[in-house]
Computed example of a mutant assay.
Amino acid sequence: MLKLTDVHAGYGGTEILRGVSFEVNAGEVITIVGANGAGKTTTLRSLCGVVEPTRGTIEFEGERIDGRRPDQIVAAGLTLIPEGRQLFPFLSVRDNLLMGAYKRSARLNYKKQLDDVLDLFPRVRERLEQNAGTLSGGEQQMVAIARGLMAQPKLLMFDEPSLGLSPLLVSQVFDIINKILALGTTVLIVEQNIVHTLRIADRGYVLENGEVVLSGTGQELLDNPHVKRAYLGL
Rank of each mutant, 00 (worst) to 15 (best):
E191Q: 05
I189D: 00
Q192W: 13
T197G: 05
L198R: 01
E191C: 03
S215E: 09
D175S: 13
G210S: 04
A182M: 11
G218S: 01
P167S: 01
L183V: 15
L207F: 05
E208N: 10
A201F: 04
I194L: 08
A201T: 02
D175E: 15
R199Q: 13
D202A: 08
E191V: 11
N209G: 02
Q192P: 15
N178L: 15
V206R: 00
G184W: 07
L169P: 14
L214N: 05
T186K: 02
N193Q: 07
V206H: 01
S166G: 08
F174W: 09
L207P: 06
A201Y: 01
R203W: 10
L183K: 14
T185P: 12
I180N: 03
T186V: 10
R199N: 13
L214K: 05
Y205L: 06
R203S: 09
L198Q: 00
H196F: 14
N178P: 14
I189E: 00
Q172Y: 14
V212I: 15
T185D: 11
V173E: 07
N209M: 09
G204K: 05
V187K: 00
V213F: 06
D202F: 07
T197A: 07
V195Y: 06
N209Y: 09
V170A: 00
L183N: 12
V190G: 02
V195A: 07
R203A: 09
V187I: 12
E211Y: 06
L183M: 13
L165T: 12
P167F: 01
A182D: 12
L168F: 09
V170F: 00
N178G: 14
I200P: 02
V187H: 00
A201G: 00
V170R: 01
V195E: 09
L169E: 11
G184M: 07
R203L: 11
G204N: 10
S215C: 04
D175L: 13
K179F: 13
T185V: 15
E211F: 10
E191H: 04
H196K: 15
G210D: 07
R199W: 07
I189A: 03
H196S: 14
L188R: 01
H196L: 13
K179E: 15
E208G: 03
A201H: 01
G218A: 01
T186A: 01
I177D: 03
H196T: 13
Y205C: 08
L207Y: 01
I177P: 08
T217A: 02
Q172M: 13
S171M: 14
I177F: 01
T197S: 12
S171Y: 11
L198D: 02
Y205S: 05
A182K: 12
G216F: 10
L198P: 03
L168A: 10
A182S: 11
K179A: 15
R199K: 14
E191Y: 06
I180L: 10
V213W: 05
I200V: 08
D202K: 08
V206N: 03
Q192R: 12
D175H: 12
I180D: 06
R203Q: 06
R199G: 08
L214W: 07
